[in-house]
Amino acid sequence: MAVKTRKTRQSKPIPSHFPNIDQVGIEERVARLNSRSIKKDSKVKALKLALSMIDLTTLEGKDTEGKVRQLCYKALHLHDSLPKLPHVAAVCVYNSMVGIAKETLAGSDIKVASVATAFPSGMSTLKVKLQETKFAIGQGADEVDMVISRGKFLAGEYNYVTDEIAAIKEACGKVHLKVILETGELNTLDNVRKASDLAIFAGADFIKTSTGKIQPAATMPVTLVMLEAIRDHYYLTGKKIGMKPAGGISKAKQAIQYLVMVKETLGNAWLNNNLFRFGASSLANDIIMQIIKQETGRYHSKDYISID
């Protein structure tokens, strides 16, 4: 397997030059984007859009089949007393739960995403990671969320990291591959840019910030750097790579700020769940609460919205 991917690498050497990132400039741009004032109709539209982009997630050691079934039911019925609410884009679970999720969601167009490749640490061999990926796909996963080998990346072994992603991508075939950079462990925005470029080069369909297990998880500066990497790739090749910030986005206001950033960095083509997702567990309910507030003028108690 690894031999095969190395062949493709030889025809096209991995990137050796990565654009510089100025952290101060990134933070200023984020502050400017966050100053956009989103009101009235525009706010409701953004909230519904954000709902439709959520990968409703449960990734805990104590997950049970029952919990996953409930999560899937919630994915289908976010808040049935509110008409015309979209449903989320996908549910995201461990690979042992993919079968249950698939079964529960049968007949809907909600995707099932499975984490793989020794999530969340990635500390395993390529062989084991490939096996795990194939198992998830065999169970019916529509999307695979893999993690990169951060230890190898930080040691400068970019070939290893790239080959590994390419190998998993090959195993995925038509199944969508999201590559988690775990930016909370990459330390600098320059590294975030490098890892984004390598993942895109190796065949990622989406790049994703975090596992949610490491702090900080998704941040706006990190996401902006990744969106700019996606934009540069699009300029060069015309190919659209998706983006998924995950972890730490629990408020509707944050979600709108992310949408503003996508709108002003990549434009219309990315403002849908084919190319932009939120990895989140509690965001959906905060958005529902805000939509109810927009419609009724009052905030509901949380007790009126189902937790899962």
Binding site: K40, S42, K43, A46, Y234, T237, G238, L266, G267
Partner: peptide, 17 residues
Amino acid sequence: KVNTLNFNTDWQYAEAP
């Protein structure tokens, strides 16, 4: 062109005076 970004988005900002 194929790789032109479209910033005339379906989602627009409302007035915020």
